[in-house]
Design a protein around this nucleic acid. Structure first.
Lengths: 229, 229
DNA sequence: CGCATACTTGACGTCATTCAAACCGTGTGG
DNA sequence: CCACACGGTTTGAATGACGTCAAGTATGCG
């Protein structure tokens, strides 16, 4: 399917926002939209012709599978995020949809050409890459020393912040984008520990579980204190 | 001190290698060399006027201090590496010299100007940033699930690879660039655990400790197996 | 309705941490 | 030269947090 940037929900936030209208039209001619259902894979570790993409809606996970078959989630991708290892000969990680998602994909060659032709695009991607680097290091910081409780509290805090439209306060209620197992894979914990600690956070009065995936923040202050930041 | 690119040991590998001679001269006029002694800080988390820099020789660590005062090492910087958060209003992490180091520093404004003026530089920094991102995710992968033994084995393997001039095999003998405590901070372990596991790796025949910091690789194959990759 | 998938809960084991003490190499001052 | 203090390291024993194994409980979907 061809791209229709004019109605794109992330056209002001994605990397392509820095392009002039003419430049964007040229990119749009090279790109294609693609939809992924929950669980579908965009590309796998080792793929040589992994496309690049901007996420338009939905959510993705970037994960690695170790030699025992355990998945480790390395990053989440939110709308306007860019996926693709530009200078690597093959993909290092799997990229999978967490929810039904819409993307705007480009062949590697087209992106490389665009980076050369449009300096502003290179700068925009550099900015995104640095943001991804910071996010990756935050996760590293979190999984490095913190207790299971603190890790989970921090993750919930992040989700609540991401689910809120305002950037300054938390959503009071939201749905978890990840299963217990995925949260465990992200934080270096087991399903059982995640489940138990969620219960304890509820007992402490920080959150309330609403069914399987729903979370209501009862005491944001407390949640933040437990997370240790 | 002014820069003398012609004798710079990393002039073919650092980001500035992509510049034309004239462009590089212009950059050199804006930059300054700086030396750091072991333990000296380049900048601290929160600094607003953190300079950017290319590491010429030595080694740096990028680390965060949590609210209990524990350091967590997020990344190591090797010669030709670039340091600096280009788009952040302030530094998020500390950067400290692990050994006596030589850098080539630039004011943030000068780097930003150069990125705008020289598209090739933006691309080179993008490439570096993506490499840093991969490194950060590797560390994440390592500290996520692996046992203390596997983490340490992987770290030693990486050091042995970094210490070798050839990119395809390990150095058979090298000095640890980090103290036990720093290795622990990097891997999410305590000093005591690092010390014990080093002993066990020696008992298993994977390595031989030569004094405090020296390591000889006795069985690279075994080391790799223990590391689980 | 019945199966599958995700989640919860409990009992128990294990690995890394914690606390404590001793050890080593190096530099310093008497 | 020796004593000694200091930082980094090693070693031991006890504790505890999280993992493992196993059983049981929703929730949803054909």
């Amino acid at each position: 399917m061809n791209l229709t940037c004019s109605t794109c929900p992330v056209r002001d936030n994605a990397a392509c926002a820095v392009l002039s209208p003419e430049e964007r039209d040229a990119m749009a001619a090279a790109g294609r939209t693609r939809t992924l259902k929950r669980g579908e894979m965009l590309f796998a570790a080792g793929d040589e012709e992994a496309a690049c993409a901007t996420l338009v809606s939905g959510a993705l996970k970037v994960s690695a599978i170790d030699q025992d078959g355990n998945e480790q989630i390395l990053a989440l991708v939110h709308p306007a995020g860019f996926i693709g290892e530009l200078f690597a000969p093959f993909a290092h990680h799997d990229v999978v949809a967490l929810t039904d998602s819409k993307l705007c994909t480009f062949a590697r060659g087209d992106i490389e050409r665009a980076i050369n032709d449009y300096p502003a695009l290179a700068r925009a991607l550099l900015r995104r890459s640095q943001a991804d680097l910071l996010a990756s290091r935050s996760l590293l910081e979190l999984t490095g020393n913190a207790s299971a409780e603190a890790r989970l509290a921090a993750l919930l805090h992040d989700f609540a912040a991401a689910a809120s439209d305002s950037s300054c306060h938390l959503a009071s209620e939201f749905d978890l984008p990840l299963t217990r197992g995925e949260m465990g894979n992200m934080l270096g914990l087991t399903i059982e520990t995640v489940s138990r600690k969620l219960g304890e956070l509820e007992d402490m009065g920080a959150i309330i579980r609403k069914g399987k995936r729903g979370i209501a923040v009862r005491d944001a202050q407390l949640l933040q204190e437990i997370s240790g930041r």
